[in-house]
Nucleic acid binder design. Structure first.
Length: 584
RNA sequence: GCACCGAUGGUCUAGUGGCUAUGACUUUAGCCUUCCAAGCUAAUAACUCGGGUUCAAAUCCCGAUCGGUGCACCA
């Protein structure tokens, strides 16, 4: 059976969008090349993402190495957690999740190491669930690609499994860059790597893929969004936790969803709105898009709320293409712990708070010579005492189990009133994370149409039986944006064509020239790769310096002057000018 | 990683132990052609890889790779 995936991939291969990588050497699963048109398409998708997140929201883009050092991934949990304990049957060689097999025997099997799991399997004499054979030792299969840094191979490095860590690691620098103010965000578009056990589903699961991620650092006490009112009326397909219980997707306005507590807060809802806007702008069909909330048990323990944007694919069903999560302070805390640095923001109060504070001031001039190496410990013990305990003539503290008496004159204490102007807080992180490859594939699939071409016979339109393949890509993402076609392959028609090409190129439009074969064939060729506008030079051009512009989707034509053609076409592609308005 | 199925020009495909491996579309060059894959002439281009059986293998056998499906894994 030929399904849409097959049709789209056949076209993508043939016309230079997507190719299996390393085909010359037989290919390798989980890797895809973007051909000339595919790379351009993907670039345009990325640039729309930049337009929304970087230019319009002000979350600047950074770029960090794709190789990360071990500390980063210890902190992120990828070294320990981004792997699964597997055990293989010695007889039928089936692989199983070791922790799943011992679920009934242990409290928290997912916390056990591979060795511990092996022990549990031996102790309980767990057999292969398939054939009853003996199970081998459990081992960790980590999904990160490992490499070594420098000669000697001693320093471990990993290809990053996500781009997010770059923003967390650069947090102190980013905080300074944004002049110590919350909220702020940084983004990154780049490659990530996961050594999938068995990648399937073509471009849906890759071992090397492109992510576009934003990490937005916000004040945990204020998860509102200043621009939320602009999007509160936006209606979206929400597949909430509740909805999933009954299998129901609801169309609901964002404002209402936040009010009803379906979406945790405004900031997250605003990110859903941005995602919605982005996906539609690049060419995903709105009716084939939904936002699915993570179930409680599916969500990471630290996450406050998490929504996936899912796109309906003909073969693969609902595919996750974006994850939008409130990750709270988990990541910053983890890196603070691993790096032993403080990762927090000083936030000033609206007005300073007066705080009464009891302070103990040991006289180190006396205590130092008296206790020598122990002096610091003694001083700390004194500082922990309350006013009452300090009021006697002699003060007693216990240091390392030893009772020590100290004269009251060696310790001063008082209650002071201090003005506090603010505090250090650990920001929460809102993380929208986009899978660019999946999105690029999805919009190809949603743009792909096969239709009977209409034929004009004596002004009556009739089905010609001819198949027309059209990629109805939004003109903004179409790799080739305009084609210049002389009606006939003759010098006098080619000449004005070159002039038009130069004009279009000056304003940054990618334009193709084609004079081989009949005009109809050339229109079809351009339909197939999604070129939105074809400009045809005919004999009338030589008389009045006008050309025809053909619209890919309707196949309609208008006449327009060569003068100013570049702005005319630019407005059609980027400024939403209507096709009728492009004609004279 | 396991099991089953498959792999022939760019794409789709015929084919069988035996001459030079079908055909269509595409592409390229030329002719023709005044707006939607028209026609004519020519050209380019393929048996996934490695090993085995055989006088002879694209065809049969084994292995690998890739692709599809199921299991497992995973977003």
């Amino acid at each position: 059976m030929v399904d849409k995936y097959e049709q789209v991939l056949e076209l993508a291969k043939r016309r230079g969008f997507l190719w299996n990588s390393f085909e010359l050497y037989g290919g390798t699963a989980g890797f895809f090349d973007y051909g000339p048109l595919g790379a351009m398409l993907k670039r345009r998708v990325e640039n729309i993402w930049r337009d929304i997140f970087v230019i319009n929201e002000g979350y600047y883009e950074i770029e960090v190495p794709t190789i990360g050092i071990e500390d980063i991934f210890i902190a992120s949990g990828h070294v320990g957690g981004f792997s699964d304990p597997l055990t293989e049957c010695q007889k039928c060689h089936e692989a199983f999740r070791a922790d799943h097999l011992v679920q009934d025997m242990e409290e928290n099997p997912d916390t056990l190491s591979a060795e511990e799991l092996t022990a549990v399997i031996c102790k309980n004499d767990v057999k292969c669930p398939e054939c009853g054979g003996k199970l081998g030792n459990a081992y960790e299969f980590n999904l990160m690609f490992k490499t070594s840094i420098g000669p000697g191979g001693k320093r471990m490095g990993y290809l990053r499994p996500e781009t997010a860590q770059g923003m967390f690691v650069d947090f102190p620098r980013l905080l300074k860059f944004y002049r110590d103010h919350l909220p702020f965000g940084a983004t990154q578009i780049g490659k990530a790597y996961r050594n999938e056990i068995s990648p399937r589903q073509g471009v849906i699961r890759l071992r090397e893929f492109t992510q576009a991620e934003a990490e937005i650092f916000i004040d945990p006490r204020d998860k509102t969004h200043p621009k939320f009112k602009d999007v509160s009326d936006v209606i979206m397909n929400l597949y909430s936790q509740e909805g999933q219980a009954s299998g129901e997707t609801k169309k609901i306005a964002l404002g209402e969803a936040v009010k009803n507590g379906i979406i945790a807060h405004e900031f997250l809802a605003y990110c859903l709105a941005m995602t919605h806007k982005f996906l539609i702008r690049v060419g995903v069909s709105p009716e084939k898009m939904r936002f699915r909330q993570h179930m409680k048990d599916e969500m990471a323990h630290y996450a406050a709320d998490c929504w996936d944007a899912e796109i309906l694919s003909d073969r693969f069903g609902w595919v996750e293409v974006v994850g939008i999560a409130d990750r709270t302070d988990f990541d910053l805390k983890a890196h603070a712990k691993q790096s032993q640095k403080e990762l927090s923001v000083y936030v000033a109060y609206d007005s300073p708070k007066k705080v009464r504070k009891f302070v103990v001031k040991p006289d180190m001039g006396v205590l130092g010579p008296m206790f020598k190496g122990k002096a610091a410990k003694v001083a700390n013990a004194l500082k922990a005492l309350k006013a009452q305990e300090l009021s006697g003539d002699e003060i007693e503290v216990t240091v390392d189990g030893e009772k020590i008496r100290i004269d009251k004159n060696s310790v001063k204490f008082e209650t002071i009133t201090e003005e506090i102007h603010g505090e250090n807080i650990i920001p929460h992180v809102i993380e929208p994370s986009f899978g660019i490859d999946r999105i690029t594939y999805s919009l190809l699939e949603h743009s792909y149409f096969e239709e009977e071409a209409k034929e004009k016979i004596e002004d009556e339109e009739e089905e010609s039986g001819e198949l027309r393949i059209v990629l109805r890509l939004p003109s903004e993402v179409a790799p080739v944006q305009a084609a210049v076609l002389p009606l006939l392959s003759r010098d006098e028609l080619i000449k004005p064509g070159t002039e038009i090409i130069n004009k279009l190129r000056k304003v940054g439009i990618l334009v193709a020239f084609d004079d081989s074969g009949t005009i109809g064939r050339r229109y079809r060729r351009n339909d197939e790769i999604g070129t939105p506008y074809s400009i045809t030079v005919d004999y009338q051009t030589l008389e009045d310096a006008t050309v025809t512009i053909r619209d890919r989707d309707t196949m309609k034509q208008v006449r327009a002057p060569i003068k100013d053609i570049e702005n005319n076409v630019y407005d059609l592609i980027y400024r939403g000018k209507s096709f009728e308005d492009a004609g004279i």
